[in-house]
Nucleic acid binder design. Structure first.
Lengths: 334, 334
DNA sequence: TTGAAAGCGGTACCAG
DNA sequence: CTGGTACCGCTTTCAA
C-alpha cells in the first residue's frame, strides 16, 4: 500500500554489478578509481560499459550516509534585491567552491526564523554554512549546525555571532561614511531612506544607525517603497521635511527618489544632495551622476579558501574576524 | 587512517532512544507524529525532551534513502544577470513550493554542459527539476533525470525538449514584437544588441532571430558588453552604421546604450529609436522613458502547482506546453 | 584480483 | 502500546 510507488527501476550499483558480472564492491572500486586496489583492465571496461548502458548515476544520499559526511556547502538565500554586485560575488564564490570539489547548495530560506532555518539546514548535514546575513543566527543556532557536523559556519552579517567565523560586513560604516560625506558637503539635515520592503532590516537598520552615529548630523528616518508611486508621494511632501540631503539605502532607491524629486521641481544637488550605496552601473546613467558608497566585498576566491581551510582544520581559524571596508565614491549628486 | 574523522557526536535517533529509555522505533513514531500507532503521552514527552536535550536533528539523507524518494525540487541557477523580474518570479516560486512541502534546492550550475549538469543533478535524486533555460538539456539528459526518479522535468527555455514538460517562453516573439513596433514607428534599419557576456545565448539568439523574422526590417547584429566603455565605443562609431533604431536585448543594455548615444550627441528618439525588454523600473527613470517589451511570466504559484500535479500524476500532464505572451509597452524612446 | 558482509541513520513492518 | 528487525544504496574492510 504505502509502497511509495517506487519508480520502476532506478538503476543501482547492484544492477551494474549484475550486468557486468561482477560484485558491487568491484563496481564501486572501478567507478571511484580506487587507488588502494588494482582491478584488471578488462573488468574495468566491462563495469564502465554496464554503467553507461544503464545510465547509472550514484545516489548522493547513500554515499554520504556511508561516508559519514558530505561536501555540501549551504548558501542560504532569501533572494532579496540586494543588487548586482552581490550576484557577481555569489557567482565567483560558487565557481571557486566547485573548483575545490564542494557541492554548493543554495537553500531558499525566506520567511524562516533562525531556529527553523538552522534545523532545516542541519538536516542536510552540510560541511559548511555561509550565511550572508538574511537570517539572524543565534549562538544556539550555530551550535545546532556544528552539532550536525558543520565544520564551518561563516556569517557575513553586520555582527559576529559567537561560535561562528565572522566576516564582519560593517553596514553601519556605510551609513557613517555617507553621512560624513554629506557633512563635508555642508549638509546638516539628512534623511535616511529605509526600504518598506521586508527582509532588508539586517542591512538597513545598521546603515541608519551608522548615519545617526555621526556627530553634527541631524538624521531623519524616511520610509520608501521601491515603486514610483511611493517615491512621488514622498517627493510631494518633501519641502516641509526641511532636509537638505538624503542617503537612500542603496543606488536603486536613490535613483528612484532622485527622479521623483527632480520631477517635483527640486534641483539636485543644489536643493537636495542625494547619495546611494553599492555603486551600481545605472547610478552613472542618470544625470546628475549619483554619488555612492561602495562596499569592498571579499572576493569569492578569498571566501572559498577561507571555507576550505576552516573545513580542513576547524580549530585553526575559528573565530577570526575579517573586516570589510566602505569607500565613498563622490560624483555629481552631492 | 581514512577514519573520516567522525565528528565527535552527531546525535542520532538511537541516542535519543537511549536517553529516553525507549526503542528507535518509538522515537521515530513520536517525532513523526505517526498516525497509525498510538503512543502514551508520558512516553511522547520523554522522547521529546530527550530529543530537545540532545539537539537532535534527523538526517535527511538517511530518511530519503529509506523512503526511496525525496521532496527535493531542483532549481538550477547560473546566476546570469537576467534581471529583477526573474528574481521576483523565483521568490514567488520558492514560497509556493515550500507551502506544498517541497524542499527547494538551487544548484549552481554555471560552466556545466548538459551532460555534466544532468548527472550532477541526478545524484541528488530530485523529485522534480525546473530548468529555467540557462542550460540546454538534450532529450537524453531528460531521460537521465527521469531514470533517476524525477517525476517532472520542466523547461522554461526557448524551445520544448522531448520528454520534458515545457513552458515555452518564446524569446523569439520578444524580438519580433520589438521589431514590429519599430517598423510601425517608421524605422527600417534596426540594430539588435547582443550581449558579449557569456551565458545569455539561449535568450539573445532567439530574440535576434525573432527580429530578423519580421518582414520589412533590415536587422543588423550589434555586440555590446555591459560596461560604459563598450557603450561609449559603440556610440562613437554609430552614425556610419546607418541605423535608425535599436532593440537592445533588455532594459539594462538599452539604458546603457541610450545614455552613451545621448552623450555622443544623438537625439532619442528623433535620430535613433531605442527599445528594451523586461520592463524594469529603471527604464522609467531615464529621460526619455524607455519603450520596452514585457514578458508575461507565469506566476510562481501557477508553476508550483504545475510541478505538484506533475509529481502526483506524471502521466496526466506529460508533454503539455504552455505559452507565455510578450507585450509591447510603448513609451518615449521610440 | 575479486567477493562477502557489515553498517551509515531512519522507517515501517510484525510480534509480543 | 512498544520493541525487534529488515531493509534503502553505497563504501570499505577482511578473506579467499
Amino acid at each position: 500500500m504505502s509502497q511509495s510507488s517506487k519508480s520502476p527501476n532506478v538503476p543501482t550499483s547492484a544492477d551494474v554489478a549484475r550486468l557486468a558480472g561482477v560484485s558491487r564492491a568491484t563496481v564501486s572500486y572501478v567507478l571511484n578509481n580506487a587507488a588502494a586496489v588494482r582491478i584488471s583492465e578488462p573488468t574495468r571496461r566491462k563495469v564502465r560499459e554496464a554503467a553507461e548502458e544503464l545510465g547509472y548515476v550514484p545516489h548522493a544520499a547513500a554515499r554520504s550516509l556511508r561516508a559519514g559526511h558530505t561536501r555540501i556547502v549551504l548558501l542560504p538565500t532569501s533572494h532579496v534585491p540586494v543588487g548586482p554586485l552581490y550576484s557577481a560575488f555569489l557567482n565567483e564564490l560558487q565557481w571557486a567552491l566547485r573548483r575545490l570539489d564542494y557541492t554548493v547548495v543554495q537553500y531558499g530560506s525566506l520567511g524562516l526564523n533562525g531556529d527553523e532555518a538552522a534545523r532545516a539546514w542541519a538536516e542536510l548535514r552540510p560541511v559548511a554554512v555561509i550565511s550572508l546575513g538574511e537570517i539572524a543566527l543565534s549562538p544556539h543556532n550555530v551550535a545546532t549546525l556544528k552539532r550536525a557536523g558543520a565544520r564551518a559556519v561563516i556569517t557575513l552579517g553586520p555582527a559576529g555571532v559567537p561560535g561562528a567565523h565572522a566576516l564582519v560586513m560593517d553596514q553601519a560604516e556605510i551609513g557613517a561614511r555617507a553621512a560624513g560625506h554629506l557633512l563635508e558637503r555642508g549638509r546638516r539635515r539628512i534623511g535616511v531612506v529605509v526600504p518598506r520592503e521586508a527582509g532588508l532590516e539586517l542591512f538597513s537598520g545598521p546603515r541608519l544607525a551608522g548615519a545617526r552615529s555621526v556627530a553634527g548630523a541631524e538624521v531623519e528616518e524616511v520610509p520608501l517603497a521601491h515603486t514610483e508611486e511611493s517615491a512621488a508621494e514622498l517627493a510631494a511632501r518633501w519641502r516641509p521635511l526641511g532636509l537638505d540631503a538624503v542617503f537612500a539605502y542603496n543606488d536603486e532607491y536613490a535613483m528612484l527618489l532622485m527622479r521623483a524629486l527632480q520631477d517635483a521641481g527640486l534641483r539636485i544637488p543644489e536643493d537636495v544632495a542625494v547619495m546611494g550605496a553599492d555603486d551600481l552601473l545605472i547610478g552613472r546613467l542618470l544625470r546628475p551622476r549619483l554619488s555612492t558608497v561602495r562596499l569592498e566585498m571579499p572576493t569569492g576566491d578569498h571566501l572559498a579558501s577561507l571555507v576550505d581551510r576552516a573545513v580542513r582544520e576547524p580549530s585553526e581559524i575559528t573565530e577570526r574576524n575579517d573586516l570589510m571596508a566602505a569607500l565613498v565614491v563622490p560624483r555629481e549628486s552631492t
